[in-house]
Nucleic acid binder design. Structure first.
Lengths: 264, 264
DNA sequence: TGTATCTGTTCTACAAATATGACAGATTTC
DNA sequence: GAAATCTGTCATATTTGTAGAACAGATACA
């Protein structure tokens, strides 16, 4: 009943396939910065597609800012702009702006009260349908969106701050200000695809890869007080951490380096 | 010259769009476990596509095991099988198998020596074109693939272990056994799309979202000794970590909980 | 300067995805 | 048991994606 899987998935056609292949070969160094890609004719031959299809893929790469098309010359690989963006230290939850004169702001997309969705209620330990406050925000870096945040807070706690506070302050800090004792958090990092709605708010194409972070924050009594579902653009945001190999010879193990800057 | 961006991206067609939309609404709880989806006719109307297109999306969801199609009745949402898979503690690098009678094995895909690709050479601090050993492996959980690993090691260090060792033992442990002092590591977590080659080896459809982990391991002298590029299936693998809110009232901050099990 | 190579553009032909409608059979509901 | 609703399947028209080829203009190189 579980034979060889047929390809009945909406894959996205050949041009998307070539797009992904080239994107991968650019980022893994097969075509390094400044290098000239093979000609469209040659690429078409390499991937067994028509030149029209190759051109679509190249146009998409050019739109992404990964290559530059030069009439009569060819397509050159542009430097991946890793110099920009935000890096977050996973061990301290503190985001570090690469350059200090940058600024992040937030934009509130939606704000409402209602019954908790199933997965959220389960993660927070609420009975299904319990009243929660839901807020969706987009964080901007110098005006460009880099993360999409969806938070759920039990309704009785949510009354302690205002809607406009959400545009400026992290939620757990608002809760602390309201008298709640934030004791700890548990979080999971994963990956997901951009749905049309998220793609629009993050200014990317739908189906792009996004970093997914789920965080459940608890107070001193162990009660869940916040559920955060965050989506980050991988080109503008990174999670980083340093580890040290410590312990005696027969019991060596890894341990996080807290607040490191140089790292290991 | 940079007006409103036209949609010249290979998006993947309407059926993929509907597929993504439904996948999102299932996982965010709009359609909870056991619920009946709207009829195909109705879905077609909701998303402004034809019934044929909706059927493609539903077929893909059924193939993924997210829904079950029932002739004459409708499509019901299946429980997301979170009970399976591997969870890795990011603070200790120790993967925890959810059930103890499971077993992970590895399969060697390729093994070769050659010049280091640009990004790898840069990350390892080698001169471009320096000789490295490259190995690609797939890790299996009970016979099913869940991660794709690409490692680069400077050629002079790589001679200390055999090709067959790679099928069983983590690389940094092989290096330790060979006399290298593993002192620390620095790693980044991100997200990427599955290229056709990776998709094949992980038994997923190309364009799927994958967790990406880059790790650079260094010895006591600060010399880079290993570059790991790992790709994980998000449905079978997760990164988890617990954080505690510690410190005095005016200097509260987050700190990782090491080796926690219950977490905060 | 001439030649080879490459992109930009256009055209025709074919393949695949999609829209639309229809009908049989299964399932649920009353 | 009858009616309503739903899926499974088929057929056809339309739209979109792709293949293949040709040619003009731009660029690189000897």
């Amino acid at each position: 009943m579980n034979g060889p899987v047929q390809n009945l998935q909406p894959e996205g056609g050949k041009s998307r396939r070539v797009y992904l292949l080239l994107l991968d070969e650019i980022s893994n160094g097969t075509y390094p910065e400044g290098a000239l890609l093979p000609g469209e004719q040659r690429l078409a031959q390499m991937y067994s597609v028509s030149r029209v299809t190759v051109r679509r893929a190249l146009d998409a790469l050019a739109r992404d800012g990964r290559i530059e098309k030069r009439t009569g010359a060819g397509s050159v690989v542009l430097p991946a702009r890793r110099d920009t963006g935000v890096t977050a230290d996973l061990t301290t939850l503190i985001p570090q702006l690469e350059e200090m004169h940058r600024r992040t702001t937030a934009r509130l997309l939606s704000f409402s009260y209602g019954p908790a969705p199933g997965p959220v209620a389960q993660a927070l330990g609420l009975e299904p349908g319990a009243e929660v406050q839901m807020a969706q925000r987009v964080r901007l870096l110098d005006g460009g969106p880099f993360s999409h945040l969806t938070t759920h807070v039990p309704a009785d706690l949510a009354s302690r701050y205002s809607e406009s506070d959400l545009a400026t302050t992290p939620l757990f800090r608002l809760l602390e200000r309201g008298g709640v004792t934030v004791a700890g958090a548990r979080q999971w990092v994963s990956a997901t695809l951009a749905t049309p709605e998220v793609a629009r708010s993050l200014d990317i194409s739908e189906g792009s890869a996004l970093i997914s972070l789920i965080r459940v924050v608890r107070d001193a009594e162990g009660r869940a007080i916040e559920h955060l579902a965050a989506l980050y653009r991988p080109d503008l945001y990174r999670f980083e951490m340093s580890l040290a190999r410590v312990g005696a010879e027969d019991a060596r193990h890894w341990s996080p380096v807290i607040g490191a800057e140089g790292g290991a």
